[in-house]
Structure formats: structure tokens, C-alpha cells
Design a protein around this nucleic acid. Structure first.
Lengths: 344, 344
DNA sequence: TTGAAAGCGCTAACAT
DNA sequence: ATGTTAGCGCTTTCAA
């Protein structure tokens, strides 16, 4: 459709392209009068600079790549929100892609972005990735990892303290007096999940509470798996009095299973989750969970990435940031509601 | 960080850059042996084509721009899902940006994208935009509008049939025997909202049911506004027996208000929504609403945009696609539950 | 203050 | 089958 380039402006203004470039970009000295004239013509012609060409020439795109396991999920949406906000403040744009939890898609996305489209990338790999080191080493631009495992030490990463959060919420359960506490795990190749379990177990240990094998059931962070996990937990002679679902979505599934079995929460069984997604406030009883500073996670990642891009931080120097989580006490653990109907 | 270009490969292979280009892109004839050699060297050097340069030269980026009012919302998440899927199938990438409901941000996003970064854009403007025509006319690439008003006829648009959906759900309420039906409106500058109201009103008219002014209260599609809207509706001597919230989020707010007032749904007051967001299945009683084919909306938009880009459709020729909505009967209207605890 | 010219990395005629 | 040569639209020395 329309296309106007500097050459046209230069022609009209009777100056060289170089002068137009200077006038438009504000850099370099141009006589005020000349600049005015150029600006006027540009306006009149509805000129829009071609940032692709600009990028080629400047060797930077002012764009940040973001790769997440998926997009359709409250957690990730909040993350993106934080990332976008911070990027916007720095006049950077975001090239977003979900890796669809599929490996080759991740590679495709990376290729796409790294092929000159971005100045740096924020990558959240959901699974444990053995080749993350290789990816980083072959990378053409700085990378910040999100929730990388602690074993990853090849680049920068921003993480949440899963261990501490799990410890806290478990301890809260213990303080309620529960001694029979079950857990529904996340995916077994997931780092967050592993850390949450570590925190859970540590809290039990700290209080000398045993964890029978039958109190540990598998899950994969989906609601469905929470549903079945709950059923498995409650279909044994020895039933837990409280359950730690390693994320809120699974807790939600557990709610439905409980409802179906006619079990009341928290009277018959207490349930707590992890993540503090919005839904956890809407369901009844409201869900006691661990707050994860999701947006902050995104913001921090952007901030550090920009430092690397701008040369203020060394991309080859590993860097690790751990954000603290916070216990959110609501009703499902057995506490009485602070506000009757949630926040409106 | 690393950077390898065709020239380096050419040098090593002892051929010209052009030959490298041909070998790498697969186009043009190159002796098998030569190609092998080039590919091997490229691999060895960990060569990655610079798609920015490529785009500059080919004058296309294989990237689609997507601008939405916001991202953190179930509706938009689903939309993005549909868009991404379809784009991926066509080997296109997505440059996503939320316009944050702020006008200047929309312009910024457009500028950014249009400056050579995308081949076309999908734009969802939430408010009525008077200058949409101007934006389209100044555009440097094809545009597909999402849920544009029917008054917009300057480019392609994909829409959902709000009128029909609102009509259907209202009629369902009428069939339940309700005659006193109230409505909580969406933002008054929103096209979807206006159409939904039109459908609502038409259904009442069709059945000779009056609509007192006091049964119409303002809202803005947020949960909070649903909460207050409900309160206003129910705080009058003449109370409606049923309420049509123009979207599910407001219905949710109404639920909370009802709960606070000690009113049972649907016994004391029936409530129906619009959108069929996931939450509408989770809340109790489950919400009767209108299903909007959100992902389909995204897919169609991509498909048509690609046609315009590929020259199969004329970007200057207005085109309008209307997707039908479907009534989702659940419990909040007074129907008995089909499945006791929702889908797991 | 302004212009000329050399790229940025790649593609695409046009030659050979 | 391969090389030469122009660009794509913009930035940036280096001269003038």
C-alpha cells in the first residue's frame, strides 16, 4: 500500500537523504529552518520510518523476544502483562510466542527471534531442559531464563522461591493441627514442581510429621489431574485431613472431586494451592494458597535483559534472582473468612 | 554475540554470495555437490539467516501484527490462541501487542508494526473509533478488524453476531416465564454492547414485554460494575425476576452481589450472561450464557488477512464476516443442571 | 551545516 | 550452474 521513503522527502526538500535522516532522528546537527521544512514534508507525505531498515543499519531492533510454554493461562497472561509494562517504559517492543510445550516449536520460535528480530530474549522453559546450555551458547543475543532450575548456571535467570512458599503453606497446615497431609504433585520433569515438593517435605520433616507414600500422588498442573489426584488420595482407608496441591488449577480440580464425593472443604478435608491465580479468590470456599509475584517476575526479567543488551551487564556472566513468595490465607485451609464474599 | 553472514560462508566455500543464498533458500539451481558443501559450512559455522535483512530485500516479513484492547482476560487469551494456531499453520509469526485500552498506545503499536515489521495487522478496537477509517486509509498494510461496528465499511472485519445471541438468551428467559427482565449494560461506547442491547430489546418487543427504564442499568464489562449494577437493579421496589448481564464478568459480579443480599440464583432472581468464558462453567450455579466462538474469530481473521497479503483478496474492498453465537443453557436461568458438577 | 558514499545482510534480476 | 550487480531503506563516517 502506501510507501514513502526518505529519498522522496529529500527530493522535495532539496536536500540529501543524510540530512533527512539527521533531521528525522534528531541526531546530528541540522539547521533549524531545514529541519522544520523536512519535518513538514514528512508530515505531509505521511512518512513512517521503516524500522526494519533502521534496525539493519543500527544493528538493533528495540524488540525483546518472549517465549513461554503457553499463553492461554492466567499465570502466563499476568507474566506477559508485567513484561509488556516494563518493556513499554523502556520504549521496547515485545515479540511474543508460546512454545506450545513442544520442543520443536521452542526451537522454531528461537530461530525466528534470533534471526535479527530481537535484541534479546526472555525464555521460560517449562520442562527441565538439558540442552538449555547449548541453546544459550549458540545464541546470537542475550537471554534471561524464567524459573530456570538451580542447576542452570549459564546465563541470567529470574525465579520464584518455590521452596520457601511450599514450606510456608505446609507449615500453616501443620499449625492448623493437621498431621495427615497429602500432596498432589506437578509434572515430574518440572523444576517448579520439584522445588515445591522439596519445600513441602521439609516442612513436614521440620515438625516430625511422617509422609506415607500413599499420600503422594502424581499430577501435571492441570485441573483434571487435580481431580483424579484428589480421588486417589481419598479413596484409601487412610485419608489425609489436608491436601497440598502444587498449583491452584489442581486445587480447583480437587474442589470438584470433593464436591462430587460430598466432602466439605475444609471441614472434611482442607486444601491449599500454589500460585494465587485470580480464580483462587472466586471459588468457594476461597483458596488458601501461595502468592507468586508473577508480574514482578516479568518486570525483573525485562530489566535485567535490558542491562545486558545495553552492555551494563555481562551476558556471559551467570546471574540469578530469586523472588520471594507469600502465604495467602483464605478459607480452604480451615481459617475463617476475613471478608465474606471476596473482593469486588 | 555470534554473527555469521553469507559472505563468510561464501568465502569458505569458494563461491559467490548469490550461490550461498540460492543453496540456503532452496530456490534457484545449485549443483548438488556445491549445495552440500555450503550447507555443511553453514552448519559448522552455526549460521542463522538474518530475517530482517531478508525481509528488507524480499519486502515481506512473514509476520502478522495483532493488537488487542488487553491481554489479561480470558476472552483475549482464547482469541490469541486461535490466531496463533492459524498463523503457525501458515508459517507466519505473530507480533502481539495490547493497546491497553489507551488510545495513544494503540497508535504507538500501529506505528511500530506498520513500520515494516509486519505484512498485515489484526486489530480489535474495543471502543467505537471514529478515526478507524483514517487509520485504515493511512495504513501501509492490510488490516482486518475484529468486532468492528457495522458502520465500519472501510476494510475487512470479522465479527460475532451479538444481536442474535442476545436475542436468543433473552427469549430463553421469556420462555421461562419471566416478564420482569432487567439488563446490565456494557460500556456505552462499545459496539458489542450496543448490539447486545439491541438484541435484548428486540426479544422483549417480540414478546410484547415492556422494559421500564429502571430495569436498565449501566455497566462497563467489569465484574465490579456487575456487582453495583445488580445492587441498583434490586434496590428498587419493583425488582426484576431475571437479569441479562451483557457479559459473563458482570454476571459474576452480580452473583457476588446476590450472595451478599442473600438472594438465591435462580430461585429469587435468574441471571444470564454473554461470552461463555471458562469461569461461567465453574461458578455455582453454572451460568447460562451465550457462546461466542472466540478462537474461530481469531482463525478467520488470520485466514482473511493472509488472503489479502497474498493478493487473493483486495485490501481495499470491504469485507464482512459474521460468526454465529450459540445459547448455552446451564443453571442460572432456572433450568435444572444437566451434569451435576460441570465438566472436568 | 550538509552531502557523498559505504555499508547493514540478503535477494533477485541479469549475465556468463 | 554460478557470478555480477543492483538495490531494500536507513545510518554513519568522512569530506567539503
Amino acid at each position: 500500500m502506501k510507501k514513502v521513503d526518505m529519498a522522496q522527502i529529500a527530493a522535495r526538500a532539496g536536500v540529501s537523504i543524510a540530512t533527512v535522516s539527521r533531521a528525522l532522528s534528531g541526531s546530528g546537527r541540522v539547521r533549524a529552518e531545514t529541519r522544520r521544512r523536512i519535518l513538514a514534508i514528512a508530515e505531509e507525505l505521511n512518512y513512517r520510518p521503516n524500522s526494519i531498515a533502521r534496525g539493519l543499519s543500527r544493528r538493533r531492533t528495540d524488540t525483546l523476544g518472549v517465549i513461554l510454554p503457553e499463553l492461554v493461562d492466567e499465570f502466563f497472561m499476568d507474566l506477559v502483562q508485567g513484561i509488556e509494562e516494563e518493556a513499554y517504559r523502556a520504549n521496547r517492543y515485545i515479540l511474543l510466542s508460546s512454545s506450545h510445550r513442544q520442543r520443536d516449536f521452542l526451537r522454531t520460535s528461537l530461530e525466528f527471534m534470533m534471526s535479527g528480530r530481537v535484541d534479546g530474549v526472555i525464555l521460560m522453559a517449562s520442562q527441565r531442559m538439558n540442552d538449555i546450555e547449548e541453546i544459550v551458547s549458540r545464541s546470537r543475543c542475550p537471554i534471561v531464563l524464567l524459573n530456570a532450575g538451580s542447576h542452570v548456571a549459564c546465563t541470567a535467570s529470574v525465579n520464584v522461591d518455590n521452596y520457601q512458599g511450599a514450606f510456608a503453606v505446609t507449615e500453616h497446615l501443620v499449625q492448623h493441627g493437621y498431621r495427615k497431609i497429602g500432596v498432589i504433585l506437578g509434572p515430574d520433569d518440572n523444576y517448579d514442581s520439584a522445588e515445591r515438593f522439596r519445600g513441602f517435605r521439609a516442612a513436614l520433616d521440620a515438625h516430625g510429621i511422617p509422609l506415607p507414600e500413599s499420600f503422594v500422588v502424581a499430577g501435571d498442573f492441570t485441573k483434571t489431574s487435580g481431580f483424579y489426584g484428589f480421588n486417589r488420595l481419598m479413596s484409601q482407608s487412610q485419608r489425609p485431613e489436608a491436601i497440598f496441591a502444587e498449583n491452584d488449577m489442581m486445587a480447583l480440580g480437587a474442589y470438584e472431586a470433593a464436591s462430587r464425593l460430598g466432602l466439605r472443604i475444609p471441614q472434611d478435608v482442607a486444601i491449599v494451592g500454589f500460585d494465587d491465580i485470580r480464580l483462587s479468590r472466586y471459588i468457594r470456599p476461597t483458596l488458601t494458597t501461595v502468592h507468586v509475584p508473577i508480574e514482578e517476575l516479568g518486570r525483573r526479567a525485562v530489566r535485567y535483559l535490558l542491562q545486558m543488551i545495553d552492555g551494563e551487564a555481562d551476558p556471559h556472566q551467570p546471574y540469578r534472582l530469586e523472588l520471594t513468595t507469600g502465604l495467602i490465607i483464605r478459607e480452604s485451609c480451615g481459617c475463617s473468612p476475613s471478608a465474606p464474599y471476596g473482593v469486588v
